Simulated scan of single mutants.
Amino acid sequence: MSQSFDVIVVGAGSMGMSTGYHLAKRGIRTLLIDAFDPPHTEGSHHGEPRLIRHAYSGGPIYIRLALEADRLWRELEEESGEQLLVRSGVLNMADRFKSKFLSRLKDTDRAGIQVELLEAEEVQRRWSGIRLPETYEALYEPHAGYLFSERCIAAYRQLALSHGAMLLPYTPVQHIEPDGEGVRVKTRVGTFTASRLIISAGAWFQALQPFVSMPIRAVRKTVAWFQAEAGLYEAETFPGFTLDTEEGGYYGFPSIAGAGIKLGRHDGGLSWQPGEEPAPFGSLAQDEGDLRRTLEAYMPRAAGKLLRSAVCKYELTPDEHFIIDKHPNDDRVWLAGGFSGHGFKFSSAIGSVLADLVEGRSPIVDIEPFALSRFNSKTL
């Protein structure tokens, strides 16, 4: 195996694997290094599926990224021959006094995104498994849906390798340092050099200190699948959804192939340290309790027996927006992190953006809002 590459990507999860694919497809000699064997359960991409929405609350930059990501997911489906995206529709529900849905309509109209603003009564008429307070409203996006996240990673992996990328799984990075005109990356299986380096280590950025010290907090999050009443929540008729309540923010999916309705909580969670194993699901009463109480209140006929559960490893910045920026002390190194909670849907586009950046091209969106410098804490 060669020891020298054009680009090394440290962290081959959703963002890293997509980046490796886009680089290799462009004929760039690329090495992907991951501490595990992607797709795996040690990052933020396991547990299928992930929502993809276009009517995004983050404004025009996120909307443009979402539309580009959708195009690239369809392109990946065509190239891989795998179904990766299901257009189930996505229903966003919240109290009308807090929802800010009206503020999104101007952006979605400009972008040509089809949406419907629905009163609680209309939501319950269309989807009788939902029970909403009368003060609630919903923004329904019929052409949104969900992605099979692990299939997406596997497809990008297969195609990246077919285009000539190299992958080192089960290979933690031990040390990174400048090396003349490039960067040197030391691992237990050898030392590798490249003229450019991309670090997309997810919740594991702390393991790369002191070379980089990102303002990213690793958070333990839980999701669960619950038995749901037949005929009300099946994937053929029920949408993906988000639900903002007084108790917290939630997201979920219909029962896919009888797996049960999946529900997770976006906010909250406990900090954990990379290298330590987060407490298993059920260690805390709120693991199941928060999710079950929410279903009982808003989708009571989906609050059946617990069928399956999972613990996820989130990576969050202080403002929960992404970081895409150069290392403050080394222009040869690009940093990409803080994607958990709402990032997976964008990973097809982020991979293309990162490939553009290392090639010196202008990406599809202005990345200035994602600058590391917006935080007071900076890296070495």
Rank of each mutant, 00 (worst) to 15 (best):
V7L: 06
V7H: 09
V10S: 12
A12P: 07
G13A: 01
G13T: 06
A24F: 10
R26W: 01
I28L: 00
L31D: 13
I33W: 14
A35R: 15
F36I: 00
T41Y: 06
E48V: 05
I52L: 15
H54R: 14
H54Y: 13
Y56N: 15
I61K: 12
I63R: 04
R64P: 03
L65M: 15
A69T: 06
D70T: 06
L72N: 13
R74L: 13
L76G: 01
E77H: 13
S80I: 01
S80M: 07
G81C: 05
L84H: 03
L84A: 08
L85W: 15
V86F: 11
K98C: 12
F101Y: 14
S103A: 11
S103I: 07
L105H: 06
D107G: 04
T108M: 07
V115T: 15
A120F: 05
E122A: 12
Q124W: 04
R125H: 07
G129S: 05
I130A: 09
Y136H: 13
L139P: 05
E141D: 08
L147T: 01
L147Y: 04
Q158M: 04
A160I: 10
L161T: 01
H163W: 14
G164D: 15
A165I: 13
L168D: 12
P169D: 13
P172C: 09
E181P: 13
G182Y: 04
V185Q: 11
R188T: 11
T191C: 10
F192S: 09
R196I: 08
A207W: 05
P210C: 14
V212G: 14
T222F: 02
A230L: 07
G231Y: 14
Y233I: 08
Y233R: 00
E234Y: 04
T237S: 13
F238V: 05
T242K: 10
D244V: 15
T245V: 14
G252N: 09
S255T: 04
I261K: 00
G264N: 02
G269L: 04
G269Q: 03
P274T: 10
E277A: 14
P278D: 07
P278L: 06
A279C: 01
F281L: 07
E288I: 06
R293I: 03
T294W: 04
E296P: 01
Y298T: 11
M299N: 02
P300N: 06
R301H: 05
R301N: 05
A310G: 12
F322I: 12
I323R: 04
I323C: 05
I324C: 09
N329I: 01
D330T: 11
R332G: 14
L335A: 11
A336R: 00
S340K: 06
F346D: 04
V353A: 00
L354E: 00
A355S: 11
V358Q: 02
E359I: 00
R361C: 02
V365M: 09
A371I: 05
L372C: 03
S377M: 03
L380Q: 12
